[in-house]
């Protein structure tokens, strides 16, 4: 039992940090896969599919993440499924990240000039080949900065799952605070740990955006 804030506390928080990073990676992979499919469907699909995906993006972006998390955790378990906090956390964050990544990537796909499509057409590429060899590689370049920027949001958003009892970094901080009653030390350390993960990502994102601007200047 930890009684006051010290080296043991930092180790305890570090375990939480590992879960935060793990959950962030799951979310990024899940949100990335669905986000890409949704982005393609949103910008290139038939009209009904575009409308459906647009509706999904609009609704999720207009709902607080905390409500999405609660709906997954409390709500769906009543439908007969039981979700342990980890699964509920991963599912709700994936639902959330999918909407935002799909929106970001749709913008990147639509930023590719029409002339590129025409050039690919003129070379007799099939629709799939057009995407695979001409459009997506260019959209990928543009998307790097915003995507890394959104990874920062994902890492920070995992903290909300503390409120359904998933023991990641923030929840670990709450537990530690209940043991030590030293909230200032505890939460400052928690904040510092998030910062150590997020700041390099933010910095990298800015670099990528600058490089993009430098690239388009020519």
């Amino acid at each position: 039992m930890i009684q006051s804030f010290g080296w043991q506390s930092v180790q305890f928080l570090f375990h939480g940090l590992v879960w935060t990073v793990g959950l962030s990676l799951c979310t990024f992979v899940g949100g990335g896969i669905f986000g890409l499919l949704f982005a393609i469907a949103r910008s290139l699909g038939p009209n009904w599919l575009r409308a459906l995906v647009a509706g999904y993006i609009q609704l999720v972006q207009a709902t607080p993440l905390l409500i999405v998390v609660f709906l997954s955790y409390y709500g769906l378990s009543f439908l007969g499924f039981y979700f342990p906090p980890l699964a509920a956390a991963a599912i709700s964050l994936t639902i959330y990240a999918t909407a935002f990544l799909a929106d970001i990537w749709r913008g990147c796909i639509e930023a590719i000039p029409r002339t590129q499509w025409e050039a690919a057409d003129a070379l007799a590429l099939s629709p799939f080949q057009r995407l695979r060899y001409v459009i997506l590689p260019q959209a990928f370049q543009i998307s790097l900065g915003p995507t890394v920027g959104f990874m920062v949001q994902i890492v920070k958003n995992t903290s909300v799952t503390a409120l359904i009892g998933f023991v990641e970094l923030t929840r670990a901080g709450q537990l530690l605070n209940n043991m030590t009653f030293q909230p200032f030390h505890v939460f400052l350390t928690v904040a510092a740990m998030y910062f150590v993960v997020c700041y390099p990502l933010s910095w990298w994102s800015e670099k990528l955006k600058e490089r993009k601007h430098a690239g388009t200047a020519h």
């Binding site: 920062v152 920070k156 903290s159 409120l163 923030t170 709450q174 939460f187």
Partner: peptide, 14 residues
Amino acid sequence: NTPLLVQLFLLFFG
């Protein structure tokens, strides 16, 4: 680069 929830805890409890 830190979550709003942690900022809340820091200001309210800290």
